[in-house]
């Protein structure tokens, strides 16, 4: 699978959008822990250097400084790799951002397994789970560059903590013309009636491709782009699952505590349904190209198709058992 030429990565869209909005909004400041070229905050640095704050390789301090800046009425964006902003600065994020509810925006570039062949140390697989577990933080993972641009705008408009997860490489665009992103609202990327994919980030385009393959086999799959992982759009997910009765969650992260965890929690209490969670199965990643990584760790289109089959079999077994 390859991206079309004009599509850029979500990190690129983040950097360009933030720089452009910062020119018109003097309250926006950017903090960097020596990764601006990778997070694409470099666009901000070049556009508004007077509001770009370099803190050096010190993520905990960066989050604390951001809390202080927000305290004076500014809107700080902290950029780092998703691994470091979530794990290295976890206590600072929890207490100085979550508990204080200060208007800090946390940006994790290089989300998940596909992180530029840097291996396990740079693959954020538990960042979504960490951010989700901290009260008061909105967790966003846009699927493509268009949606990311709108998510940056929405994060600025929203008064309070936001975690914005980016992907390093470009993936196919999924946002339809005229699409409007809103915090807390998922989007139906493909309609179907046999099985529901709930996914975020680059996995949305993978799920759309899986749905196309399934349709050749006569299976009608619905794809829900769940760009807001917290708060979850329970209404849209439940209404789809009432229709299909079988669910596959797909995320570029560990299946523990992230989107898959969130959906399983929702369904467990509201609408128990067979749910197959695609993502890292409680393990660390490694080096390798994106295609090989997604294949080895069970996150490619082939595995998504298999997962859909499994979810539907579980549903059918259960309904068969009920009727006996």
């Amino acid at each position: 699978m390859s991206a079309t030429d004009d599509v850029v990565s979500t990190r690129e869209a983040f950097g360009k959008t933030l720089a452009s909005l910062a020119k018109e909004n003097a309250r926006i400041v950017a903090l960097d822990a020596d990764l601006a070229s990778s997070t694409r905050m470099s666009y901000f640095r070049d556009a508004v250097p007077e509001r770009f704050i370099q803190v050096g390789i010190a993520e905990q301090n960066m989050v604390g400084i951001a809390a202080g800046l927000a305290h004076t009425g500014l809107i700080p964006f902290c950029g780092s790799f998703a691994t470091f902003i979530s794990r290295r600065a976890c206590d600072q994020v929890a207490l100085l951002v979550g508990h204080t509810r200060l208007n800090v925006k946390l940006v994790g570039a290089y989300g998940g397994l596909v992180s530029g062949n840097n291996g396990a140390t740079h693959q954020a697989v538990e960042d979504i789970a960490i951010m989700r577990a901290i009260p008061n933080i909105v967790v966003l993972e846009p699927a493509d560059d268009i949606e990311m641009g709108m998510a940056v705008e929405a994060a600025i408009e929203y008064e309070g903590p936001v975690y914005l997860r980016c992907t390093r490489d470009p993936w196919p665009r999924v946002s339809p013309p005229g699409y409007r992103f809103r915090i807390g609202k998922a989007a139906c990327a493909a309609e179907g009636s046999d099985v529901t994919f709930v996914c975020s980030g680059m996995m949305v385009s993978q799920c759309i491709e899986a749905a196309e393959r399934l349709s050749c086999e006569g299976v009608s799959a619905e794809v829900i782009n769940c760009a807001t992982i917290k708060p979850l759009d329970a209404e849209m997910i439940l209404s789809s699952v009432r229709k299909t009765g079988a669910v596959v969650t797909a995320e570029n992260a560990s299946v523990i505590g992230g989107l898959g965890g969130a959906v399983a929690e929702l369904l467990g209490s509201e609408l128990p349904s067979p749910t197959v969670r695609v993502g890292l199965q409680d393990e660390y990643g490694e080096c390798g190209d994106n295609v090989s990584l997604l294949h080895k760790y069970g996150m490619d289109v082939e595995h998504l198709v298999e997962a859909a089959g499994k979810a539907m079999r579980l549903r059918d077994q259960r309904s068969g058992a009920k009727h006996r």
Partner: peptide, 10 residues
């Protein structure tokens, strides 16, 4: 102290 650095910068 990090927060103080932030309010002073702010």
């Amino acid at each position: 102290l990090s927060v103080g650095v932030g309010t002073a910068l702010g």
